[in-house]
């Protein structure tokens, strides 16, 4: 498989990959197309494949009004990642390797937890936050957003950590390492892929959250981009160019982060962490 056949096969794969991406991202192109289309042309029949008579109003509005919201969203996303990891990593380790009593029950709780409708969660948070004074704070929103990711993260860590060979841990323990040190120096480095996967999800969920932000951070001076977009949706009118333009602009830093994260996964693998 790794013989001389390799090179042509791979070039062929690149072409297929590009085609697949093009198909997958067609709706994204369409969004971009709409962001540049004049309101009068938006519902043209047949639709315009290309915004040959573009308007930049949407971008002007988005750039002028949404940059602070963008920064807030990035911050909230990163905060959510940190909190999720802090709660979920030890728990995943415990469930996968230390086998506390009641681990099975915990599985169910995590599954059920994820089924609670977001709106009900939001109502619960509202009642709690109003008493704690956490309404309209970024910290409060980070905590709320983390509930989207924590059950998932624990389940995923558990699944991945279960695959780490027991012998590795046993060896460390023979060397005199305690549970904490085993966790830190064996488990964590070996969990790099799953940590990055979880981080990605935690970030994306926080990034796209609307319900918590809308319930808990309405009156705040700092609002995330998902709320920011709503200034373009008036009572009876909708400014589609601005909405789509905001989505385009907001995707750029997030896409950048994605590419970096993906490189890390690749690096982790080539470093051969798991195999050593």
């Amino acid at each position: 498989m790794r013989g001389p056949m390799k090179a042509p096969t791979r070039a062929w794969k690149t072409v297929v990959g590009v085609v697949l991406v093009a198909v997958m991202l067609f709706p994204v192109y369409w969004m971009f197309n709409v962001s540049l289309t004049k309101t009068g042309d938006m519902r043209a029949d047949p639709p315009h494949w290309f915004p040959w008579d573009p308007t930049f109003e949407g971008y002007a509005a988005a750039l002028g009004q949404q940059l602070p919201a963008l920064a807030t969203s990035l911050f909230i996303g990163l905060g959510t990642v940190a909190l999720t990891l802090v709660v979920a990593l030890p728990a995943g380790y415990s469930l996968a390797k230390l086998r506390p009593r009641g681990a099975g029950v915990m599985d169910f709780l995590l599954l059920v937890a994820q089924m609670i409708p977001a709106v009900v969660m939001a109502m619960g948070f509202y009642a709690i936050y109003i008493r704690l004074g956490l309404l309209n704070t970024v910290a409060g929103l980070i905590v709320a957003d983390s509930t989207l990711a924590v059950p998932f993260a624990v389940l995923l860590f558990r699944a991945f950590m279960a695959g780490i060979p027991r012998e590795l841990m046993a060896a460390a323990q023979i060397d005199g390492a305690g549970t904490w040190r085993t966790f830190r120096s064996i488990i964590l480095p070996l969990s790099r892929n799953s940590v990055i996967t979880v981080s990605l999800f935690a970030f994306l969920w926080a990034w796209s959250d609307f319900i918590f932000a809308s319930t808990l951070n309405r009156n705040s001076d700092v609002i995330p981009i998902t709320l920011g977009i709503f200034r373009y949706i008036g009572n009876n009118t909708t400014q589609w160019n601005s909405i789509m333009a905001t989505a385009v602009i907001a995707s750029i830093p997030a896409a950048f982060l994605l590419v970096i994260a993906q490189r890390y996964i690749a690096a982790g693998v080539t470093a051969g962490a798991v195999k050593d």
């Binding site: 697949l20 997958m24 709706p27 994204v28 969004m31 990605l200 994306l204 796209s208 896409a255």
Partner: peptide
């Protein structure tokens, strides 16, 4: 990475 872009868009 581009395959993940759909996820960056608000629903």
């Amino acid at each position: 990475a581009l395959f993940l872009v759909p996820w960056l868009l608000p629903l």
